[in-house]
């Protein structure tokens, strides 16, 4: 029988959502349409419309050593053109944000090529060649992985993951990069990811409603969602891993 990846253990909606996001065969639901230009503005690495700066000449123009691995691996568009490596970083609220730092790294590794993801406690960064990044960022912002109120594109001053939401339901942001327009209910990004004000504003749509947020959560939270302890399968799996690691640490032959 062919191997079929299971992605992660668990029987709850949270585990289900995690599996869906990690599975490259699952098409992520598109929820908003932030344009390429707006994404470039939010990330702030280059002026929209300007040429990509390069770190080395295009692969076609430079002499490549005879290497079987290079022959096997097709370079991404960015690598082919010799683009610089740039990043996008997200903060996700633990109050049921639709994606979470660890999961982002997993799903990016399953879905994207030529990336270097890094997870920190409340934020996740992914680095790759600039034009690949813009392509991937589109997926990360326009689909079900993002919620304008609970996720933020934050290159620095990322604090907010573990804080209570404010009264408007927005995640705390010291730099107030996005503002909720109370009249229209639309979230507008007014600063780029490192907090430099934009000339205009980028509309990223309305925050998703509470029902959607709860049904698309990927974090266990006993107060506002599904409790970790309610997922017997996941608890069993974690306990097994924990027990094996401890035993292996002391006596490898018993593991």
């Amino acid at each position: 029988m062919a191997y079929k990846p299971q992605y992660c253990a668990g029987q709850t909606i949270v585990a289900d959502n995690r599996r869906k996001q990690m599975d490259p065969a699952h098409k992520l639901e598109k929820l908003r349409d932030v344009s390429d230009k707006d994404l470039v503005l939010i990330m702030g690495h280059r002026v929209p419309g300007s040429a990509y700066k390069s770190a080395h000449p295009p692969l076609a123009e430079q002499q490549e050593p005879a290497c079987p691995v290079r022959k096997m691996v097709t370079p991404t568009d960015g690598a082919k053109a010799g683009d610089r490596v740039r990043y996008i970083q997200f903060s996700d609220s633990m109050y049921n944000a639709p994606c979470q730092p660890y999961l982002r790294s997993y799903l990016e590794a399953y879905r994207f090529r030529g990336i270097d993801p890094g997870t920190l406690s409340g934020r996740q960064i992914v680095e790759c060649r600039e034009r690949d990044l813009e392509k991937y960022a589109k997926d990360l912002v326009n689909t079900e992985l993002f919620d304008p109120a609970l996720c933020g594109v934050r290159g620095c001053t990322v604090h907010g993951h573990s804080l209570r939401l404010d009264e408007n339901g927005m995640m705390f942001d010291m730099l107030q990069r996005c503002i909720l327009d109370k009249k229209s209910g639309i979230v507008k990004i007014v600063k780029d990811q490192v907090g430099v004000p934009l000339d205009g504003e980028v509309k990223v749509g309305k925050p998703m409603d509470a029902k959607w947020i709860k049904s698309h959560s990927t974090i266990y939270h006993s107060l506002v969602g599904t409790a970790f302890r309610d997922d017997a399968e996941l608890v069993e799996y974690i306990q097994r891993i924990h027990s094996l690691r401890v035993k292996y640490g002391f006596m490898p032959k018993e593991a």
Partner: peptide
């Protein structure tokens, strides 16, 4: 703003 690339800029915040 006390640090980061936007250091020194004003930080208008509705809160």
């Amino acid at each position: 703003i006390p640090y980061g690339p936007a250091k020194g800029l004003a930080n208008p915040h509705p809160m």
